[in-house]
């Protein structure tokens, strides 16, 4: 793909450049809808399209009033805080249980490994509406429906597959002779775990945790059913807004969420690089 050879025919050139244009268009399709939200969120009017003032780059056309609304209106602030109260606890549960289980699953002799794996990954595959329906029925019966812990448990269950997948992926590449070397050098099992194994699988654990966090932080369907008004989260508020009367504050909220995604993405990329460097997969 890197450039055309000097002997390329005209047909090849035309094809090559049109292919690049097609790819550019697809990238545009991927990224533009997200980026366009950002300027729209600074609209001085309550419109969802660019006003003539905005197109003329007139400062009058822009304002931060939707952000002011987002950060002061309890309709948005309460859900934001609910989300921030639910996601970290759910993430902690997923990561703690998921990491232990992933270590167990990577042992050489695990009975029914495939079946267990299939069960643990299933929350990612089963349609959310089905999980939500089942949880609604079951949690009502055991008194968890409409409670904080009900939502936390449900979200933790949804985050588990990501932790399992990322941590087992790190463990697959884990060289057993490293733990043997540690034992040989005199380290007991506990020290070997914390000094050798843990630091090496940490990138996997952290990225699994980020996935679990974003899963909970973005989740609407399950919380709609398992939660009650007291657990209204940010995505829930956005969903209600989108379904009922849409207010431009939603664009400000979306922009805030995009910034969070960018931060997470960068963190993940840094972790990936670091982990590859540790495993010597790419130099430098």
């Amino acid at each position: 793909m890197a450039g055309l050879p000097p002997y390329a025919s005209t047909g090849q050139k035309v094809w090559h450049y049109s292919y690049l244009v097609i790819c550019a268009a697809i990238f545009f399709f991927l990224i533009a809808p997200i980026l366009i939200i950002i300027p729209l969120s600074f609209n001085a009017e309550n419109f969802f399209t660019f006003t003539p003032e905005m197109l003329a780059l007139d400062p009058e056309g822009y304002s931060t009033k939707h952000y002011r609304d987002f950060f002061t209106n309890p309709d948005w602030q309460v859900p934001l805080w609910n989300s921030l109260k639910i996601a970290p606890v759910a993430t902690f549960l997923s990561v703690a249980l998921g990491t232990l289980a992933a270590i167990g699953l990577s042992q050489p002799h695990v009975p029914f490994r495939r079946a267990i794996m299939a069960i643990l990954i299933s929350p990612m595959i089963v349609p959310l509406i089905i999980s939500a329906a089942g949880m609604y029925f079951f949690y009502s019966r055991i008194g968890l429906q409409g409670t904080y812990w009900g939502v936390v448990l449900a979200h933790a269950a949804l985050g588990i597959p990501f932790v399992i997948i990322t941590v087992t992926a790190t463990l697959v590449g884990f060289d057993r002779s490293l733990t043997r070397a540690a034992a040989n050098l005199g380290a007991g099992p506990v020290r070997t775990f914390f000094k050798v194994q843990m630091p090496l699988i940490l990138p996997g654990v952290v990225s699994g945790g980020l996935f679990a966090f974003i899963t909970s932080f973005d989740e609407v369907v399950v919380v709609l059913f398992v939660g009650s008004a007291g657990q209204k989260t940010l995505p829930w508020q956005m969903f209600t807004g989108l379904r009922e009367q849409i207010s431009p504050t939603i664009l400000a909220a979306a922009t805030v969420l995009i910034s969070i995604s960018v931060v997470l993405l960068v963190t993940l990329e840094v972790l990936r690089r670091r982990s590859e460097r540790l495993r010597g997969m790419s130099p430098g």
Binding site: D175, S177, R180, A181, A182, L200, L278
Partner: peptide, 9 residues
């Protein structure tokens, strides 16, 4: 060890 087993971190 054959593959050295040096701790990469």
């Amino acid at each position: 060890f054959q593959n050295y087993a040096l701790f990469p971190h």
